[in-house]
Design a binder for these strands. Sequence first.
DNA 1: TGCCAGGCCGGGT
DNA 2: ACCCGGCATGGC
Length: 223
Amino acid sequence: MTTREKIRAFYDAMLAAYGPQGWWPAETPFEVVVGAILTQNTNWKNVERAIANLKCEGLLSPAALDAVDAARLAEVIRPAGYFRIKAARLKHFIAMLMERFGGDLDALFALGTASLRETVLAVRGIGPETADSIVLYAAGKPVFVVDAYTARILARHGMIEAGEAGYEEIQDLMASALPDDVALLKEYHALLVAVGKRHCKKRAPECVGCPLERYLEEGRPAP
DNA sequence: TGCCAGGCCGGGT
DNA sequence: ACCCGGCATGGC
């Protein structure tokens, strides 16, 4: 089986094992943007609390985040960790949105996929994964989102060298094996996270009970 | 009880 | 071009 075939087979295996994940968990595209920044190296549970706080305080809109004091914003998002840095990062994104797009998220998302990614990536505090999460899950444009689980799972299945492949390299590998299908790309990344959380933790010596290997061997999903 | 979570930046080699 | 320390809360 070629690497390309494996990448496609993984999708079937994960979908069969866990079903559609329905990502991103948010009510609006703007909430996706905020969540993408808040979840950097942080447990999603903590992010949920921070977002609930933002909703309570009426701060979950570009205009409100633009107006709020950075120190107060930091206190509101405290449960998400790195709260001072993340408050600044949210402010940087909002500043870009206000100055260049009049605070209109749809105007930003009207950009083509490549320039949208560049624009978002240029914001201080937004790196490749956060940018791609915004492009895919908030703007609905086709990019593959790479994260720590993606690299770890691919490495443990011998598809890349552990610690060798960079972000873009992994992204290109996945993109070359998959169609430009937004729904599939959304689901694929979400499924990798689902599998990673259960079977591919950082410290674990191997992917215990991972459904993928078994699927590849037996040609059908693990029970 | 430590280790880890859906990263990214800035300064130093 | 890499490498590393710093950033911080809450869960298992």
